[in-house]
Design a protein around this nucleic acid. Structure first.
Lengths: 352, 352
DNA sequence: CTGAAAGCGCTTACAG
DNA sequence: CTGAAAGCGCTTACAG
């Protein structure tokens, strides 16, 4: 029978216990345990041996109360759970964050909020209660209201996103403009002239960046039929928009989707409508994930090392916590992996 | 310029500040703030008003050091990141946990470990440092080594899984036996006689439960060709096994997959091999997710309300932390949703 | 009903 | 190099 009350019966050892057994003061034990000057080498060794023997572990509350950092960083996500659940992006990001934080003895606290207001309330509470040393901010928006609040709170933060719109906060970001441009140029080279872009949430900064790049490159190439449609990242939206696009009189021969789920949904709709991929329709997914390799044909995709991106963000946040000056850190851009879902448009079939 | 040093310039208000302004002792403030007897109604109101005015928030470290709970529970996951990232199950579970914990002012600390040894080290450290009040344990195995260790530590825990194999720990579980049996009976009723089961990690208890149920029902129905193959839950494994199954001389006319990703992969392999679904092959996925509705045909799937399952687990853990006696709590079993991927086997095409 | 005090387990000036 | 003491911000017996 393991009852919570029982755990109180045998106290965890404290530095006072170690001090008693070593015949020194608590202060000396503290110096020894923290590798600071103030004790002789021999005393230090003796103290460390006793600490190991009794299985001493620092009480994090006591340390934090004496002004130390709490060794925890927070991640609050405002996307609805149904979107979070299905996008591999977040778990990949979290696993990268985790690995890096763990290596520095930092923990990660996760909170799912339902909008910026409650997300900001979470930050305020975390900081006021000293539950975190810093936070990671996802899904950066244009003129994001979280930025000025975090600046004013003085809560160390790293924004995952950019470029720009991050005020004086440190950020990590990757350029989405060049990969989008490269993708359209690739489709153009294959012979595509009617290209559509199914974008993500229009408030997100990276959606703006991608959409702007799409307009820029398609108008430069003289593609007057280029069109961007926005979505909420769900498979349902991807399917609905694809159905609409494929039913239009001048339907596109290529579609670029802003996430993998919508691209998979788009492929299914094409199959349902007996539109051959890639003969009549080429499909490109942004966010390469194992999912893109599971479909038939496999999806050509724009992919990055998301765990590495998370690790970079974690590292920079630890720097900020240590007092580093704000800076924008650029990560490697996404790269296009060609698979079976893209090819030259089959001229006699693609038009009707 | 927001520099960490600046935040130290204006101290957060403490109960001492409130006591001074209210002209009472710190003890009185503490009683008032915690809604305990010991102060008059009028004094309490005055104290609460001052606390609100100065924006007081409790310092969590100080509270914890004085013996209070820390209001955090931990979740350590030992699956490799590549599996975590792609299975919607975990994010769905986390979002349910989160919602319930948040409602009780509890936070969630997440840690990705690489195996049971390091997972147990995480529990020990969390508990020794008083960083969590309890933990949630996933992916229960047969004779799981984590159970006796958690019992011995006296760390409040809820195991997500069962039935059985949870020692004296509280658990939440759902019966996987009946849904599997029901699924096979449904396929049998459609006319299927050669049915395969692509199972998950064989060490997991629920894999054992499902596999046992599969053997039981297929032998009861006299299906001598029934076969279970085990996998690691990845799409690659699902594809490989499906390819092998569909290339065998007496290939199955129906396959039940232990997760959604493998089922999607199986569907792609069928399309690649020009095996018609559901005409020549019926497919059932365990774990219904938005993904199952995106494929063409959509996948018949065994689904449960995973966020609700997570919420139940969180609630029970909070009970255990409050001293509740160990118990096994049964959640609703998975239900079969029929979609386009299952149907009667087309006799003349299915055999060759 | 209220105040003064001790204590939680650490860290960190400050004397010797 | 070492010891004794104060303090972090709370909670909680213990006196009045």
């Amino acid at each position: 029978m393991t009852h919570p009350a029982r755990r109180l019966s045998h106290r965890r050892p404290t530095i006072a216990d170690i001090a008693r057994r070593a015949g020194v003061s608590k202060g000396a034990v503290s110096y020894a345990l923290n590798g600071r000057p103030g004790v002789s080498e021999e005393t230090r060794r003796r103290i460390l041996a006793i600490a190991a023997e009794v299985g001493w572990q620092p009480n994090s509350a006591a340390r934090t109360l004496s002004g130390a950092l709490c060794n925890v960083v927070g991640l609050a996500l405002s996307r609805p759970a149904r979107v979070l659940g299905i996008e591999p992006f977040f778990m990949a990001l979290v696993s990268g964050l985790e690995a890096e934080l763990h290596a520095h003895d930092y923990g990660l606290t996760l909170q799912i909020a339902d909008g910026h207001a409650s997300e900001l309330a979470v930050y305020r509470r975390w900081w006021a209660e000293r539950r975190v040393d810093g936070v990671l901010v996802c899904d950066l928006r244009v003129d994001d209201p979280r930025v000025p609040v975090l600046e004013e709170l003085g809560l160390p933060a790293v924004v995952i996103g950019g470029p720009g719109h991050t005020g004086d906060l440190t950020s990590v970001w990757a350029d989405d403009s060049a990969p989008l441009t490269e993708t359209v140029e690739y489709l153009y080279a294959l012979g595509h002239r009617r290209i559509a872009h199914v974008a993500g949430l229009s408030e997100l900064l990276h959606t703006r960046v991608r959409t702007a790049a799409f307009h820029e490159v398609t108008s430069r190439l003289g593609l007057s039929d280029a069109i961007t449609l926005s979505s909420d990242y769900t498979g349902e939206a991807g399917a609905r928009i694809t159905r609409r696009l494929l039913s239009s009189p001048n339907r596109p021969t290529a579609i670029v989707y802003d996430n993998d789920i919508m691209a998979v949904a788009g492929l299914s709709v094409a199959q349902e409508l007996r539109v051959d991929v890639p003969g009549e329709l080429s499909i490109v997914a942004w966010d390469d994930s194992p999912l893109c390799r599971l479909t038939h044909p496999a999806l050509t995709a724009l992919g990055r090392d998301i765990p590495a991106y998370g690790a970079l963000a974690a590292r920079r946040l630890l720097d900020v916590i240590s007092g580093a000056a704000p800076a924008a850190h650029r990560d490697a851009p996404a790269e296009l992996t060609i698979r079976g879902s893209t090819g030259a448009p089959d001229a006699k079939r693609a038009t009707r």
